[in-house]
Simulated scan of single mutants.
Amino acid sequence: MMATTHVFVGLVLAAAVAATAPEYAGSVALAAILGGFFPDLDVCAQHRQTLHFPVYYWVLAVPSTLLAVLAPTAVTVAVAVFLLTAAAHALSDHVGGGLAARPWEGRSRRAVYSHYHGRWLEPRRWVAYDGSPGDLALGAVLSIPALFVFDGVIRSIVVAMLVVSIGYAVFRRYFAGVGERVLEEPRSRHSDD
């Protein structure tokens, strides 16, 4: 799934919290956005392995959620939303199209690395691939609660993420081709030497 779709998942949770406890609206929205993007910071290292923990995030998220319910403060609730969103992100990568430049070809056997299991989990392909029409539709539907519950900066961020999602979905396959050409060019220069 697109990083924005992961954020929209977290914003559904944040919207539910904000609707029942509006005093936490800003902190939970920010926590959901950060938690949705956080695991993908490993794109600079071993993507879907370094910061993706489909089991261990839950080990932290469950007690932090319990703490937030028993002792709600802006911090405890925000930490719970951050961890729940990061946990949902890492786990939901398992249901995507796999870790490959062209995941629509269905060749990848790697979706997300499970440190608990000590192996890569295979893609389920419930969401065909990041940037697929289904991914865009899912993200758009998941953004609706945030558009209704939040206003101001958060609503503007949601709208901007929707625009980015649409652009990414439209050009996703093109981006894969450009990336391959960019990677091939240095190789062809070395072969000419």
Rank of each mutant, 00 (worst) to 15 (best):
A45V: 13
H47E: 05
R48V: 07
Q49C: 09
Q49Y: 15
F53S: 09
P54R: 15
V55E: 03
V59C: 10
V59A: 14
A61F: 07
P63A: 07
S64H: 12
T65V: 04
T65I: 15
L66C: 04
L67K: 05
A68F: 03
A68Y: 05
A68T: 03
V69Q: 02
T73R: 09
T73S: 15
A74G: 12
T76Y: 01
V77K: 04
V77Q: 05
A78Q: 11
V79S: 12
V79K: 02
V79E: 01
F82M: 11
L83Y: 12
L83G: 04
L84H: 08
T85I: 13
A86S: 13
A86C: 08
A86H: 01
A88V: 15
H89W: 04
A90D: 01
A90S: 08
S92Y: 07
D93E: 05
G96V: 05
G97Y: 09
G98M: 06
A100C: 15
A100T: 11
A100R: 12
A101P: 02
A101D: 00
R102A: 08
P103G: 01
W104F: 12
E105R: 15
E105G: 02
S114V: 14
H117P: 06
G118F: 15
R119N: 12
W120M: 06
L121W: 13
P123R: 08
W126E: 01
V127N: 07
A128I: 04
Y129R: 05
S132G: 01
S132R: 09
P133Y: 11
D135F: 06
D135M: 07
D135G: 08
L136F: 07
G139F: 01
A140G: 07
I144H: 06
I144F: 12
P145I: 08
P145F: 01
A146V: 06
L147D: 00
F148K: 11
F150N: 11
G152K: 04
G152E: 09
V153T: 02
V153W: 06
R155M: 11
V159K: 00
A160W: 00
L162W: 00
V163W: 02
V163R: 14
V163T: 05
V164Q: 12
V164P: 00
S165W: 10
I166K: 02
G167K: 07
G167N: 09
Y168R: 04
Y168V: 11
A169P: 11
A169H: 02
V170P: 08
R173P: 01
A176L: 00
E180Q: 14
E180R: 07
R181S: 14
